[in-house]
């Protein structure tokens, strides 16, 4: 379970998170939606302290961290129990696909090399890229890179995987292959998934829980059918109408 208690974060005078309170149950798929600049990504990055919130509490199962007093050891501990998939993939450019996945196993988990390689290959197959084991990121398409990013996160067997707009820098065709992998992950893996995305249809299909954020606060949260079909708040309706009309327009 991840719990946020009164998380605040400002960049200079720009207050990005204005007191976030919420609980994400263990093993659930939680999708955070909302307009750009609403603080979704910042909230996600606050979990593993890539963005250090100004105040509040972050709880991951048995780890309770008061953000203001967070020690290096606390931060390191929470990072070892989480993994992240980035918008820009952020694969290690000097490592092959296989080495990218092995890196965390070798260095962080201290798994011996043959075992790490075996695990890495297993996850590479899982995302359908077994034949690309020795390719460097510069030799792979965006969609392939992102699938390896997902494999890298999965291989660590973390309690939580944080997806930061994993499809936002891909074209329509490649979005499909990445979402397919993510759906598979959601079904097969029992770690908690937190996904920031603009893919409403993905949220509808896969999410157990949707959080709608706007302007640094959580406007509304609940199961997908409730949030997407019968939003209570005016702001949610307004936001969704854009997406739904857009989808209709595409058809």
């Amino acid at each position: 379970m991840i719990e946020f208690k009164n998380i605040h974060k400002a960049f200079g005078s720009n207050e990005v998170l204005k007191g976030i309170n919420c609980k994400i149950p263990t093993g659930s798929v939680t999708v955070i939606i909302g307009p750009s600049g609403s603080g979704k990504t910042t909230l996600l990055r606050a979990v593993n302290f890539l963005e250090k919130a100004d105040r509040g509490e972050i709880i991951l199962d048995d780890i309770h961290i008061n953000v203001e007093k967070a020690s290096k050891a606390d931060i390191h501990k929470i990072r070892q129990r989480t993994a992240m998939v980035f918008q820009m993939y952020n694969l290690f450019k000097n490592k092959t696909a296989l080495e990218n996945i092995m890196e965390g196993l070798l260095v962080v988990k201290k798994i011996p090399k043959p075992k790490a390689q075996e695990t890495a290959l297993y996850f590479l197959e899982k995302v359908g890229l077994g034949d690309k084991a020795n390719a460097y990121p510069s030799e792979l398409s965006g969609g392939q890179q992102q699938r390896i990013g997902i494999a890298r996160a999965l291989a660590l067997n973390p309690d939580v995987i944080l997806f930061d707009e994993p499809t936002s820098s891909l074209d329509q065709e490649l979005i499909g292959e990445v979402l397919e992998v993510m759906k598979k992950v959601a079904q097969e893996v029992n770690c908690t998934l937190v996904v920031v995305t603009h893919e409403i249809s993905f949220a509808r299909e896969v999410a157990d829980n949707i959080i709608f954020m706007d302007n640094g606060v959580i406007v509304e949260e609940g199961p997908p059918e409730e949030i997407l079909n019968n939003p209570k708040e005016e702001r949610t309706k307004q936001f969704l109408s854009r997406y739904i009309s857009l989808t209709e327009y595409n058809i």
């Binding site: 990072r79 989480t82 980035f86 290690f92 450019k93 000097n94 996160a153």
Partner: peptide, 27 residues
Amino acid sequence: VDKGQMEAALSIGMTWFQGLYRIVFRQ
């Protein structure tokens, strides 16, 4: 070196120095 490289290293649980030595430094 792109900031994302260090972020990725930290996100998988490496320490700053591990990220520096194994990833950023080599690039």
